[in-house]
Amino acid sequence: MRAVARLVAHPDGRGGTRLTELAGEPPLLLRRTGHRGPVAEVYVVGAAAGPLAGDDLRLEIEVTTGAAVRVHTVAASVALPGRVGATSRMMVSARVHPGAALHWLPEQTVAAAGCAHLAESRVEVAEGATLTWRDELICGRHAEEPGDAVLHTVVDLAGRPLLRQTLAVGPQAPGWSGPAVLGGAPATGSLLVLHPDRPADPPWVHPGGTAARLPLAGGPATLWTATAPDAHTLRSHLEP
């Protein structure tokens, strides 16, 4: 299955946000659910199980100066095996203009047994924009070893690299569950917070030794990174 969805936000001239484009196709449908103050709220509604290997899903988001958008997904997406030798792909690309705000806060991606999944995030943030970007990965459904999943995150701030991370889990990723990478934790994720008026917070490690706050080198940005025994605990570390 191939699907492209597109969301474009502009200021509405009255202090709020107008969505000038909100178009999707199954299984990637977008719904505006309301607003919180000036922030428009949008849900990605998955209309089918999956993604299945072979699926290619793309979501493009553009937030222009003065607009603010918060995007959620209604449920976790479960990457499942499909066509033999094929990969499922979920690509989210976003552009956030100066003075705009984007909060990308989806539910988890679950890497089911036998899956081959690539989740790509490509974000271009202008100087003076605000960004919250969360990615969570659950390695396997209940008591199951995951297939291969790769989470690839590329964030540029004002045309300069801010964050580049590729996390690979599954049979093709040597040592992924070992003590150098996830230490046996089945859940992992990160939350990137970029705020133009607020300097990054200093490093801090959760007393449990499984989550940390990391100020990045390339701008006023903080990355929260965590490993956890389950999705619920993971989320508790990654609430914006």
Binding site: T166, V181, G209, A226
Partner: peptide, 14 residues
């Protein structure tokens, strides 16, 4: 390549 390891970051800060 940008291969990441969450525990490497956490361990380093600890």
């Amino acid at each position: 390549p940008a291969a990441a390891a969450p525990l490497a970051d956490i361990h380093a800060e600890v």
